[in-house]
Design a protein around this nucleic acid. Structure first.
Lengths: 200, 200
DNA sequence: ACCCCGGGATGACAAATGTCAGCTTGACTC
DNA sequence: GAGTCAAGCTGACATTTGTCATCCCGGGGT
């Protein structure tokens, strides 16, 4: 019997997945969570074999949770299930030591089989992404990432400078180098490509 | 027996919802679709009582599909099921004549009950949104919307001018008035708030 | 000890963006 | 027929962004 905790922020999707998995004879959903912190709590409480988690959730992301569990040396294996075929997400997931990575675009059958394989100790990666992991590594420094995240909110240089206690010129400089690294013509384009590759 | 066609772009979510609904004694999922065009085809083929559809899908959106079905005078009732609590989406859905609007944040039970009520001829709107519909109407002209959509891609004034066959100054003017209407300090902020309210 | 790199800063300059006033034209309403 | 309004344009101006060269500091490497 595979004991699973399921973390996913959309209640309807969470409920549907939970019911379906529970219908499998060899799977038991022992707990569910709607965000990263609830996921950590549920794992601590139920000590499942596998944590099945989304990436984008309010508060702690699924990647944060995975990192935390691995750091703790907690025996729970993590299977990521996400909408996004972003190579940067996969890379970070791998670095965080997750056991599997499947896409919501795949049929449900793939989720169940991935779950079994992860439980059996295998590593599972969505075939569409197996290669993608190797293409481009994140060239951004932590500071540049931080600035780009501010840009996505529509903040001006002055706004960013104030929020991060920097000089306005410094903000321009960082964004300039980030734009160069990403081959973007302006701040928005830079922020967009960084987001699309999962680097934010 | 309520005959349903289900349109949702993420295969895993689509599969899960389909299986769950089929478990209900009074519901039969007679067809599924992964985008708007498939949804129209499936409705034409199966003539279901209710089309249950997501909004954001590749190609035609769920709102486009609803509009088309109502225009045709086709008897199928439309129940929208979406992630986004954007008041603009709800307003457009109402204008398009949909029979119901539920959020993926709600529990699955709500989906099933909404489905039954829509089939019975009632109108169902997610309670979180019932009020929201009345707050702010879209103040943007079609042209301004179009320009803001370009802005979300990170295009410069020159890019937009070229793509839409406009003078660069005209682009600046339109964005300027859009920014004023939306109370935004710059183009990105304007694009963000317009998107968040479902006006794009 | 030396060099490189990330973080932080300055100043100057060029280019892009935002603001304003004012003009035309073609619909649509009253 | 006058008025209104979206769409489109121009030109002048102020402000914001982007680019570059150049500087300082501190922590790793070798």
């Amino acid at each position: 019997m595979i004991r699973v905790v399921l973390a996913e922020d959309q209640a309807m999707v969470r409920g549907a997945f939970a019911q379906l998995l529970d219908l499998q004879p060899d799977v038991a959903v022992v707990g569910t969570a709607g965000d990263g912190d609830e996921a950590l709590a549920a794992v601590a409480l139920h000590r499942p074999d596998v944590l099945l988690t989304d990436i984008e959730m309010p508060g702690k992301s699924g990647l944060d949770v995975a990192q935390e569990l691995v750091r703790r040396g907690d025996g729970t294996r993590v299977l990521i299930i996400t909408t996004f075929a972003r190579s940067g997400y996969l890379r970070r997931a791998m670095d965080a030591g997750v056991a599997g990575y499947v896409l919501k675009d795949a049929p449900i059958a793939e989720l169940v089989s991935a779950l079994r394989r992860v439980h059996a100790g295998e590593r599972v990666v969505a075939p569409e992404l197996a290669m993608a992991a190797w293409d481009s590594a994140d060239p951004l420094t932590p500071r540049e990432r931080e600035l780009l995240r501010e840009v996505t909110t529509g903040a001006s240089n002055a706004d960013i400078a104030a929020r991060l206690h920097l000089a306005e010129g410094t903000v321009r400089n960082y964004l300039s180098t980030a734009m160069a690294k990403l081959g973007a013509k302006n701040r928005s384009e830079a922020a967009n490509t960084a987001r699309d590759r999962g680097w934010l």
